[in-house]
Design a protein around this nucleic acid. Sequence first.
DNA 1: ATTTAATTATACTATATAGTATATTTTTCT
DNA 2: AGAAAAATATACTATATAGTATAATTAAAT
Lengths: 211, 211
Amino acid sequence: MAQKKNRAAGAAKAKNGIRNKLFDFKREQILEVAERFFYHRGYQATTVDAIAEELGVTKPFIYYHFENKRDILLHLLERTMSRSLSVFDGVDVEKGPPVEILKELVQRFVLAVIETRVSTAMFWRDEKDLPINDKENIRKMKRDIDGGLARIIERGIESGCFKVNDPKMVSICIAGMISWIYTWYQSDGRCTPDEIAARMSEYILNMVGAH
Amino acid sequence: MAQKKNRAAGAAKAKNGIRNKLFDFKREQILEVAERFFYHRGYQATTVDAIAEELGVTKPFIYYHFENKRDILLHLLERTMSRSLSVFDGVDVEKGPPVEILKELVQRFVLAVIETRVSTAMFWRDEKDLPINDKENIRKMKRDIDGGLARIIERGIESGCFKVNDPKMVSICIAGMISWIYTWYQSDGRCTPDEIAARMSEYILNMVGAH
DNA sequence: ATTTAATTATACTATATAGTATATTTTTCT
DNA sequence: AGAAAAATATACTATATAGTATAATTAAAT
């Protein structure tokens, strides 16, 4: 009959706006540190104590703000997912010139991966540490992204501006090539994010035989 | 002054061929189970006890054949690396028609990734669990692969049969797109490995503007 | 100001697990 | 067969770490 002691478990009350903002702020701080640590050391190898120490607090502070360790990972991954899906914001894959739309999507996608590369790495590495239904949730979002790319490629093929077969495989290839950035991008590297985006969109338009 | 008790530490003697083969065979059995477990559960989450139990032996059996847990991971990754590098066997990137060579390399690379997808996943996930100099070793091999691809693309550009800029970035894109296969390939999927290899090589030749 | 509720810390539990000292069994050699 | 060496198991240690019961502190409410 142990009742929950932390706030993380229950929904935040509508009133007390200031307090809730403070609560959210602290959660953000925890997430920021956790992200860094999970990225460099991995989820399993990161201890809750280490996160607490980095923040200058103690473990119960963390458990007051999150239900458990997995809960922290889940929040990080959900944030990354929604950022990735936002690539489609304001873009209607069913209308407009496929070449332009694909180019735009690729560029946005590249920038999103670079921006979220730390959590994207966890995405592909630590997903297995989630409970099954959260895992399924994430898989679905991945499918949505591949599906969006596949649809624009299909339209491009139908309208004759792309010359390529198997839109599904092409879209997986595109998604892979872009996602892969997280394994090699370095902020002090040779190219800026915009340059990378520009080149990759060029390569990808070549790939689908755009003209 | 505790002297090593396991054979894993010392070099195998040249004589006693049968015994060494048996020793190697047992090591292979351990590696096979470890690979499966590391893949599904991750390195950290896999216990040595679990590996032993799956094999129907006990923990000291493992430690007699390997120095420690990391040693097992290291052997798995080294095996994968050398399989990946074998993609270049008998291929001279400095001679012959770039189109044909790139096509051949891509197809081989695809098949290698599919074949070693389990350990390739670990490659990108559990590398961080290795000691620094082993990590550096692995990085070097990755660079060798990207470098080989970049070289053939450079030659293709020089000889006018590829139309694309920035060979280095192109080669990273190619390597990424192919490596990515490990995240989605399923043996009961829609395409056979050969079909995937054929399509990808086509896409990639498109990408570099081959004609 | 005092009471109550929310927040954070101290100090602990329970458990998991890498690695090992030592005993036992099996194999090899003469 | 019997001695020596190799291979494997039993039973243990040491340690790390997720999570918690409870106490102390701080903020809010009356």
